[in-house]
Amino acid sequence: MSSSVSFLGTGAMGSALAGASATGGRTVTVWNRDRTKADDLAGVTVADSPADAIRASDVVVVCLLDHASVHAVLDPVAHAIRGRHVVNVTTTTPAEARALADWTRNLGADYLDGGVMAVPELIGTPAGEVLYSGSAEVFDAHRGLLESWCRAEYLGFDAGAAALYDLALLAGMYSMFAGFFHGAAMVGTAGVSATEFAGRATPWLQAMADSLTDFAAVVDAGDYGAAGQQSLYFSDPRYIVTASRDAGVRTDLIDAVRALVLRQIDAGHGADGFARVIESFRGAA
């Protein structure tokens, strides 16, 4: 385990990770393109360049904007990462994560990809989690560092696995938030505040979340016609569409949900349960 760690990128998340690392007693070096975003961090050394930051530690944590920015920062100093462990927690696609793993391996470095399932405020607490994939050697060597940030789970050698889970979980989160905003817009036309609506929506959505395991069992079994499921005919959200339009609320989100349902009804599966809409995502009509 290395007692020193370097960070490339000190935005909100990078700063939180660097701060938690310093609090845990490690020697922390940081670099950021806008140095003013790093100068206020306590207990760290601010490097003048990415190369200087990389040379300061055996493990380098990359927390930048996107895949392109990772290459923009690392390409000019690629020679410096030879022999080092690279932990990339920048949000990327699975394909981009795999490409970065190959790229670093060709440079003689070892790569671990991380999907951060937390907001900066949760770093340093057990409430957040980071999913990792790629080099097991890097994960094992620096597990103490990773767990100083929040809970750490290793998903296997495929460097794209963490990004896949990360983005899949975010798909569910953003869809839920968008559904709440649609509902808030609907009741807002009757003078109901979003805060009041949240008081009703939160316990309702939490209760409905318990149904996920039941839906998952149906999907894994492929038994969409099993008894006890509400059919797609009754799951058609046409009344939500009509009520929303009557209230002057745009129906983009519910139109998309309805299209998934109707695709399966039109294919002759209307008597099946709502879980069958997963086949609309898979492209099976």
Score class of each variant (00 low, 15 high):
Ser231Lys: 11
Gly11Asp: 04
Thr90Arg: 01
Gly199Cys: 04
Thr90Leu: 01
Ala152Ser: 14
Asp140Pro: 08
Ser148Gly: 10
Ala109Ile: 06
Asp210Met: 07
Ala227Asp: 15
Ala243Glu: 09
Asp102Cys: 03
Asp166Phe: 07
Met1Cys: 06
Asp39Gln: 13
Leu167Asn: 09
Ala53Met: 07
Leu65Asp: 00
Gly156Asp: 04
Val89Thr: 12
Arg82Gly: 07
Cys150Pro: 03
Gly199Ser: 10
Val192Leu: 15
Leu107Lys: 12
Tyr239Asn: 07
Met186Lys: 00
Ala267Asn: 10
Met1Gln: 09
Ala161Lys: 10
Phe180Trp: 11
Gly228Asn: 07
Gly114Lys: 05
Thr10Met: 05
Ala16Ile: 06
Gly9Trp: 01
Ile278Cys: 02
Val28Leu: 03
Arg84Gly: 06
Met186Pro: 00
Gly268Asn: 07
Met173Thr: 10
Ala68Tyr: 02
Asp110Val: 12
Val28Pro: 01
Thr91Phe: 03
Leu155Gln: 12
Cys150Val: 05
Ser57Phe: 03
Pro120Tyr: 03
Glu153Asn: 14
Asp214Tyr: 14
Asp39Arg: 14
Arg151Gly: 13
Ala97Gln: 07
Ala95Gln: 09
Thr93His: 01
Ser69Leu: 00
Phe281Ser: 08
Leu155Glu: 08
Val62Trp: 01
Ala216Arg: 09
Ala16Trp: 02
Pro120Thr: 13
Ser135Leu: 02
Leu74Tyr: 04
Asp110Cys: 10
Val257Cys: 07
Arg143Ala: 11
Leu164Trp: 13
Thr93Pro: 01
Ala12Leu: 15
Val87Gln: 03
Thr195Asp: 15
Leu155Tyr: 10
His79Met: 00
Leu232Lys: 09
Ala190Val: 00
Leu212Ala: 15
Ser135Asp: 11
Ala194Gln: 11
Thr213Val: 11
Leu232Gly: 05
Gly268Ile: 10
Ala221Ser: 12
Ser235Asn: 14
Ala78Lys: 10
Trp149Asp: 03
Arg98Ile: 00
Ala184Ser: 12
Arg143Trp: 06
Val61His: 09
Gly11Leu: 03
Ala217Asp: 13
Asp210His: 13
Cys63Ala: 13
Gly183Asp: 04
Ala161Pro: 08
Val187Cys: 04
Leu107Gln: 13
Asp158Ser: 10
Pro126Tyr: 08
Leu170Thr: 02
Pro237Tyr: 05
Val119Ile: 12
Ile240Trp: 05
Ala178Asp: 09
Ala185Glu: 09
Glu147Leu: 04
Asp214Ala: 15
Asn88Trp: 03
Asp102Glu: 15
Leu64Glu: 08
Gly14Ala: 12
Lys37Gln: 08
His79Glu: 15
Gly128His: 08
Ser133Asp: 01
Glu279Ile: 00
His269Arg: 15
Gln206Asn: 11
Ser135Ile: 04
Asp223Asn: 09
Ala226Glu: 08
Glu147Ala: 06
Phe177Val: 15
Met1Lys: 13
Gly108Ala: 06
Ala20Phe: 07
Leu169Gln: 13
Phe197Thr: 12
Val119Ala: 15
Pro50Met: 07
Pro76Gly: 11
Gly172Trp: 06
Ile240Ser: 12
Asp214Phe: 14
